[in-house]
Computed example of a mutant assay.
Amino acid sequence: MSEITEKILTKVIKKRPSNSHKGNYGRILLIGGNENYGGAIIMVAEAALNSGAGLISVATHAVNLNALHARDPEVMFIDWRDRNLLNLITKMDVIVCGPGLGTNSFAHQMMFTLCQNVSPSQTLVLDANALDLIGQDPKLIPTNVGLIVITPHQMEWQRLNQIRIPYQTDSANLSALKKIFPIQNVILVLKSNHTHIYTSKEEILVNPVGNPGMATGGMGDTLAGIIGGFTAQFGGKLDSVLAAVYLHSLAGDKIAKMDYVVRPTKISAILPQLMKQYADKG
């Protein structure tokens, strides 16, 4: 096991060349936010936007349109019942699915459609309800995708593999990852007070930063958005994920110096400034 260090940020975050455009920084699709949990996918979108993703589309319940565009007008919207969604899925570099998705029959069908239409050139980030659905039906695990990043908290991980939280040791987590995703290139970001990252190559890394002020709703949605934004613009690889995890907690630590509670939306708000600092150092 090794610790993620601040060096990962200067390694991954680079100055943007003058001759570039939004298409150079990744096309990302976010799927989630039913009629009761629109805030989840909006926080994902805000994190992806502020972490630098070039083009962001959100597939969500139609009731979320006004709130999404009032908060983040830079983000594109598609009704998740629109037939054009299937065509959009095939054009993305990164897809984040799960926050606020729900676990009803429609959500199940959405996951089935997604896993049948992703490709080896894409990165798929699965969080929250997407993982609950896989726990209910392992047939929803995609097998034809370049990289899968799963981002459960410990209870979601328990629901997925039946390992109770006190027994989620490094060896048990690696074994479960191999069993659930036997042939895929997978990264497990297991969220806790010090998040652990596991890979299908049996690498184990721990995130040393973060604070208890971050124990609030929406924090995981924000992390999923940052991971999506980083893999979209810096590539679907382990370093991109590690940098996203570290920056998310580092931002939380900076806010916690002044605030008792760290709001996820405040983390998203300071990402551009932090990324500028590390791009200038690189």
Rank of each mutant, 00 (worst) to 15 (best):
N87A: 13
R83N: 12
L68Q: 02
E74A: 15
G54W: 06
V63S: 15
L68M: 07
L65R: 13
I78N: 00
M76K: 01
L88T: 04
L65K: 11
G54C: 10
L85M: 03
M76A: 04
V58H: 04
N50Q: 14
T60A: 09
N64A: 09
R71T: 01
E74Q: 11
V58L: 10
A67R: 04
R81I: 02
L68H: 05
H61S: 12
A70V: 07
P73H: 05
W80P: 01
N87R: 13
L65V: 05
N50M: 10
G52F: 07
L86S: 13
D79M: 06
M76F: 01
A59I: 06
A53P: 01
N84Y: 08
M76G: 01
R81W: 08
R83T: 12
P73A: 05
I78S: 03
H61V: 10
L88P: 08
I78C: 10
L88H: 11
P73L: 11
I56S: 03
A62L: 14
L49N: 03
R83G: 13
V63C: 12
P73W: 04
H69T: 09
L65H: 10
D72H: 05
N66C: 14
T60H: 08
A67F: 02
W80A: 03
P73Y: 13
I78L: 07
V58S: 03
I56T: 05
I78P: 06
W80V: 04
N64Y: 07
S51Q: 11
A53S: 04
D79I: 05
R71V: 09
R81K: 15
G52T: 06
A62N: 08
F77W: 08
G54S: 00
L55G: 03
A67V: 11
L65Y: 12
N84C: 10
S57H: 13
P73T: 10
A59G: 14
L65S: 02
V63Q: 14
L49Q: 05
N87D: 12
G54L: 07
V58Y: 01
A62C: 07
W80D: 08
I78E: 07
V58F: 09
S51V: 13
L65T: 07
L65E: 06
D79A: 08
D72E: 11
V75M: 03
N87T: 15
D82V: 04
L88S: 10
F77K: 08
E74H: 03
A53W: 00
F77M: 09
A70H: 09
R83K: 13
N84S: 14
R83S: 15
E74D: 12
R83F: 12
L86G: 09
L65M: 04
W80F: 14
T60N: 10
L85V: 15
N64W: 03
W80H: 09
D72S: 11
R81E: 14
W80N: 13
